[in-house]
């Protein structure tokens, strides 16, 4: 590390507010986009699975009904 202490690292030579705000916002935006992508994929798979189950059920009732 080029800094003398951890406090020095946080201070960033008096520019800590700018540096850490920049990295904080970036981290939030990147994580949010990743989470959104994974969640949409999970929702899609759940929806398709539910549709498949429902279709299976209607097929079964038709078979037993006739």
């Amino acid at each position: 590390m080029v800094f003398d202490s951890f406090a020095d690292f946080l201070a960033m030579g008096g520019r800590g507010v700018y540096v850490w705000t920049a990295y904080g916002i970036s981290a939030v935006v990147i994580v949010a986009s990743m989470v959104q992508a994974v969640r949409q994929s999970t929702v899609m798979r759940d929806t398709l699975a539910r549709q498949a189950r429902r279709q299976q059920q209607t097929e079964n009732t038709h078979e037993s009904g006739t």
């Binding site: 960033m12 008096g14 920049a22």
Partner: peptide, 20 residues
């Protein structure tokens, strides 16, 4: 953020470059 040398003009605020 932690190991690259500081900039001779901008000091440490230049470290924003690593995400910008």
């Amino acid at each position: 953020l932690a190991f690259a040398p500081p900039d001779y003009q901008q000091g440490n605020s230049y470290r924003i470059i690593y995400i910008h």
